[in-house]
Nucleic acid binder design. Structure first.
Lengths: 192, 192
DNA sequence: ACAAAATGAATGAACGTTCATTTACATAGT
DNA sequence: ACTATGTAAATGAACGTTCATTCATTTTGT
């Protein structure tokens, strides 16, 4: 795999092309030939950077998931207040989904498709550790409902993906005052 | 299109085959040849019942969505209590997703893929009218948060899909006492 | 001049769809 | 009751297309 500066630029262009094509037309309409053209390289060049389509898609998923986690926990240092910590992380996540809409949409496409193999998904889940720890701390303090972390995630984080999807279809618009509303709903569903 | 009794049986077998294949391997791994084999018919026979793959997938989506709505509003007659009405509908929806897991998983696969065209999606959304009306009534009475119905849906209904998906991956198990927990979280997120 | 990187035409597998043919079935005639 | 006839249903091999992948060749960078 090329490791030059230009090489990295091509790698990035390929990843961006996959995100763009998958978001606008789905996995079934993202052939390698188009990915190559969109990235400004020849079809064969892809195989110098990735082992094949499956590998390419998995790598894109992992890199985007990493970017997501990095955003979610940016500047995060646990304080004494579980609620403050949760608010920090929640707003980070919301900001990522709004600012990097393409990446967020791509992730939600991946979450329900068997195109990503289970190994990569497990790897992607690993990054959420700090949030799970926070919830556990909140539960120990009697601040967070004593339920499965999956339930907490389903009600406080997952809904954002739905709203993003509606926004993508021009049925709903997430403006700033609404974000605060949404946060309140998220917190009210998991707090005790 | 054949209208005999045997014909309808084949049509149903085809629809079941699509649901099964899409759920287990995704849209990209559900070729017409496999759909035919799974349904016990020859490849060409599909085209006597559907106009092509796109039409087949759309029809499956619409029929499953209809079954979902029928379950959601089964025996539903508005009462004086918005909360009671919501509970009725919510438990109907939860019961459907547990009882008819295949259909529910299929619907959630469809919700994020461009494989279904926008027209069919709009048509599918139409069925949720009674729930939107209920929420509006609740808002007029000051019982339900005065926010977009998409937000209400995102927090009270959509999370069930996430939990179902986790259950599908054996990471979470929805047992009866948990359902009541989940309902409380749903209600707490939308009530005032 | 050398090696690494990039190319894009060629390849074969897989796909959705078609259609000439066969099969199943209902109705009519004897 | 049996067979002939007409029509609808079903078949699956064949077709054209598209896809991911390869590799002999060319281009680029040092």
């Amino acid at each position: 795999m090329p490791t030059t500066e230009k090489g990295q630029a091509k790698r990035s262009a390929l990843i961006a092309a996959v995100i763009d094509l998958v978001n606008n037309n789905g996995f079934h309409a993202a052939p390698m030939s188009l990915i190559a053209k969109r990235a400004g390289v020849a079809a064969g060049t892809i195989y110098r950077y990735f082992d094949g389509k499956q590998d390419l898609v998995n790598k894109v998923y992992l890199e985007v998931k990493e970017a997501f986690s990095a955003s979610a926990f940016r500047d995060y240092a646990p304080t004494d207040s579980v609620e403050d910590d949760f608010r920090t992380i929640w707003y980070n996540i919301a900001a990522f989904k709004l600012r990097e809409r393409d990446k967020a949409v791509f992730l939600s496409q991946c979450d329900n498709t068997p195109m990503i193999d289970e190994a990569s998904r497990q790897e992607g889940l690993r990054h959420l550790r700090p949030l799970l720890d926070l919830w556990q701390r909140g539960q120990a303090q009697g601040i967070i409902r004593p339920v499965s972390p999956y339930q907490l995630y389903a009600f406080s984080i997952y809904p954002i993906a739905f709203l993003l999807h509606m926004q993508q279809r021009d049925l709903y618009d997430i403006t700033q005052p609404r974000i605060d509303e949404v946060y309140r709903m998220a917190w009210d569903s998991i707090k005790l």
